[in-house]
Simulated assay, not measured.
Amino acid sequence: MHWHLDVTFKEDANKTIDKRAAENLNIIRKWCISILKMIEIFRPKLSMKKKRFVISMNPAEFLEQVLAF
């Protein structure tokens, strides 16, 4: 999972000083990865980073599909 967190969200570059905030961000990222794994967008073999990018470009289109999980 660490590899996915680092590649998809660049977690190693995170400079959060507050320990509680860093822990909360980690939990949010893991939650997002679990949702991205379940969603099928366009092609079944689309990478997590590309799925995240596609959703960010048009969030209204994918909002219902993302919130269904």
Rank of each mutant, 00 (worst) to 15 (best):
M1Q: 13
M1D: 10
W3M: 10
L5G: 07
D6T: 09
V7K: 13
V7D: 09
V7M: 06
T8A: 05
K10N: 14
E11Q: 12
D12I: 06
D12M: 03
D18R: 08
D18T: 04
R20F: 10
R20T: 14
A21V: 12
A21Q: 09
A22C: 06
A22R: 14
E23W: 07
E23I: 03
I27Y: 06
I27K: 15
K30E: 12
W31P: 00
C32S: 11
C32P: 00
C32Q: 14
I33N: 04
S34N: 15
I35M: 03
K37Y: 12
K37N: 13
K37M: 08
E40S: 12
E40V: 07
E40N: 13
I41K: 01
I41T: 01
I41W: 00
F42A: 09
R43A: 12
R43P: 03
S47C: 04
M48Y: 15
M48F: 13
K49V: 10
K49T: 05
K50E: 15
K51I: 00
K51E: 00
R52A: 08
F53W: 10
V54N: 01
V54M: 08
V54A: 06
V54I: 15
I55F: 00
S56K: 08
S56Q: 08
M57Y: 05
M57G: 11
M57T: 05
N58G: 07
P59G: 01
A60H: 14
A60E: 15
E61S: 07
F62H: 09
F62C: 00
L63I: 09
Q65Y: 01
Q65F: 00
Q65T: 11
Q65A: 10
V66W: 02
V66N: 02
L67D: 07
A68Y: 03
F69T: 13
